[in-house]
Amino acid sequence: MEPDQKLGPGQSTDSASERTIRRLAPAVSGVLRVGVVISSSVIAAGVALTFVSSASYTSARRAVPQLRRGVLHPAGLHAPRTVAAVVNGVGHGDGPALVMLGLLLLIATPVLRVAVSTIGFALDHDTRFVLITLVVLAVLVGSFAIAT
């Protein structure tokens, strides 16, 4: 590959936007990486905890047909639907609640990525992109607030 590859996007056009992206890319990539690592670790721990702590789930073959039919509480396990219920369940060492916490962290990862971009654009005084990312952030937070 040619040496100018390191310049990254926008090299032949707007140098200001190119500088912003070159500074922003490691931060955005890093936020996504941290979000993915933390959420997948919590999810994996929750799955392990479910299998270890709930002998009825591990052994009960009827749990699978129940899951297929859409019964959400196989073998007496509960899937919390609110953030408060998730936190409460995690406090009691509940495996499925720990999985839900991990899934919520996974859902939060793209939202956090947008927030980090807003800060990055603000540091570079790129007002239009600060507004653009704020609109996206408002829609995301608003939709989650309305739903839950």
């Binding site: 999810i43 994996a44 929750g46 799955v47 479910t50 789930y57 899951l67 959400l72 196989p74 396990l77 899937a79 639907r81 609110t82 499925p96 609640a97 999985v99 839900m100 991990g102 899934l103 919520l104 859902i107 939060a108 990862t109 793209p110 939202v111 990525r113 947008v114 996206v136 829609v139 995301l140 939709s143 989650f144 607030a145 309305i146 739903a147 839950t148």
Partner: peptide, 23 residues
């Protein structure tokens, strides 16, 4: 990811996100 996150709250609240299947 952002598009999906915009509707994930609805599915979460409805109880469609089953931890033992989604995980």
């Amino acid at each position: 990811g952002v598009t999906a996150a915009a509707s994930a709250g609805v599915y979460f609240e409805r109880g469609d996100v089953n931890p033992l299947i989604s995980a």
